[in-house]
Amino acid sequence: MNTSVSNTGRLLMAALRMLLVLTVVTGILYPLAVTGVAQALFHDKANGSIVKAGGKEVGSSLVGQSWDLPKQNPDDENEAARPDPKWFQPRPSNSSYDPLATGSSQLGASDSRLVQAVKDAKQQVAEFNGVPESEVPKDAVTGSASAIDPHISPEYARIQINRVARENGLTEQQVAKLVADHTDGRTLGFLGEPHVNVLELNLALRDLAKS
């Protein structure tokens, strides 16, 4: 009995030493080595693809943000966000584009609350952009998985052109060209879906409107 207890104790100590050594290899050396290489070769990407405009950091090209009007009452937490008609609008977000609270609605595809949310979003997007509901694309009325999806579909960008041009004093052709320039196809031609980066598009829009 005593020998089996001391055997078990010896085995557990050996296991602990093994775990500590492997922690050094995989938990310290490995991430530090990868970080070193990543910071040396891909400094901007490794640090979050931060986008600067006019020398100031304004976001990350991989993290979506909201494009709402300033709150009427900054102290009112329940005040509904109002999208700013001047900007291209992103997809609905489960967390108002807070990067510290990523994740989706988790509602099932036939859930009545999701049906209502889609119905409301469809009506709002159609009205806001002055298009019939039948032209509103699926990504405009569904929440993304991450809640910080930086992209919209080219179709969703297209139905916003008319409104954005009007609000910024630009012609539709100018804005349509901007959208075309900022539409990325599938990666390598066949991976994923075509998409438009909202932050980059809006920054280009701001430059165009200023000039």
Partner: peptide
């Protein structure tokens, strides 16, 4: 995309990212 909400939206994009589809 069966399911009432997906049917209404025109596709099963709830909880999916645009770049993946």
């Amino acid at each position: 995309h069966p399911g009432a909400a997906s049917q209404l939206a025109g596709g099963a994009m709830e909880g999916k990212e645009q770049r993946f589809g």
